[in-house]
Nucleic acid binder design. Sequence first.
DNA 1: TAGATTGTTAATCGATTAACAATC
DNA 2: TAGATTGTTAATCGATTAACAATC
Lengths: 210, 210
Amino acid sequence: MNKRSLPAPVIRRLPRYFRYLEQLKSEGVERISSGKLAELMSSTASQVRQDFSCFGKLGQQGYGYNVAKLAAEFGDILGVNEKRSIILIGAGHLGRAIATNFDFSHYGFYLSAAFDVKPELFETYIVDGVAIHDIAHLESYIELYKPQAAVLTLTQTAAQECAERLVACGVKYLWNFANIELKLQGPDIVVEDVRFSDSILVMSYYMVER
Amino acid sequence: MNKRSLPAPVIRRLPRYFRYLEQLKSEGVERISSGKLAELMSSTASQVRQDFSCFGKLGQQGYGYNVAKLAAEFGDILGVNEKRSIILIGAGHLGRAIATNFDFSHYGFYLSAAFDVKPELFETYIVDGVAIHDIAHLESYIELYKPQAAVLTLTQTAAQECAERLVACGVKYLWNFANIELKLQGPDIVVEDVRFSDSILVMSYYMVER
DNA sequence: TAGATTGTTAATCGATTAACAATC
DNA sequence: TAGATTGTTAATCGATTAACAATC
């Protein structure tokens, strides 16, 4: 695989390619051409081939792309075969929803612990095998277990402080659901935001009569 | 306000501008220059001015932009002062999290009803004043109350069928949390996706050693 | 007035699309 | 081999950045 860093738009499109390829694989499709895939995805053959070429020669002239091979390749690129531990901060409704519904293992993660401030939750389980700990013990937990990433499902006000504590302990990857722009120093910190409010506002924009 | 349709990148940036402007307003800041705002947002003065100019002349030479005026203008553009009813489909963990935590009213919506398939939930309340109804009654509810949008917080398999039923009844705006690409006809249907899996995969991509 | 800062035009950059020779 | 389809180069398009005259 290629070590050059990719254009951001390509990186953002990767999960979608992966999703379609997994789907095709599960339907038993063996091979697909850039044109057919583009049609499925409302993209263009040119873009598909241009994007894929970032990762070397994945196809074969006159044949197209082998679906299983390509899905596996993209899976590797995206890290879905890794086993990285992730901790969840904030065992409220959203944290519970994610712990319960979200299949971390499908994306190369496993949920190893949860944290909250509420004493009545301590040492209960957010989901089978995943205990909720006192957030006061965050630092000692991280020191011991070295989780690689954290999900932030807490209130706006607590999120910044908590993110700083995580970064101070060496957690470099934050999956942030709090409606705040985290300000963190360190060039190798990655914050990936899921911003419900931005999303509904884009929909809202289209609803306004103009 | 302007009736031309905006470039998609500008539309995606609007909620973020709005967020920063509201923040500044709440801090009592009266005016701000494109340069200062850009610095705050890790953007550029050029981009800020170019983006703002899509909406007419919002600033004043030598002065900058009035924060309250600009926040109000963007609020109008984004529709946050509207009062549009939205229904929630799928009263599982995620649906409950959103019904409970998400402040719809802040973004120009109010949650008017929820729907699920589980009989034990019928006529219970997902949140104060918002009843959960039998999804079988979706069509009759829509006919009567004409909700303008719907939040989809249900499983992958149910989402497509449900989306089709909504569209058939005239609901044109779907806020989709299901991990599926909804295929819907109709040129004026807007689907806004919140795709947890794509987001975690982008983070995962950056975690892979390369 | 002088300084600051806009709105807008022009220049640059990057991403998408088109074209086509290479080749399976 | 002939047809299909890639990988890649070149052309186009659109978005970002820079520059500057207008003006508060």
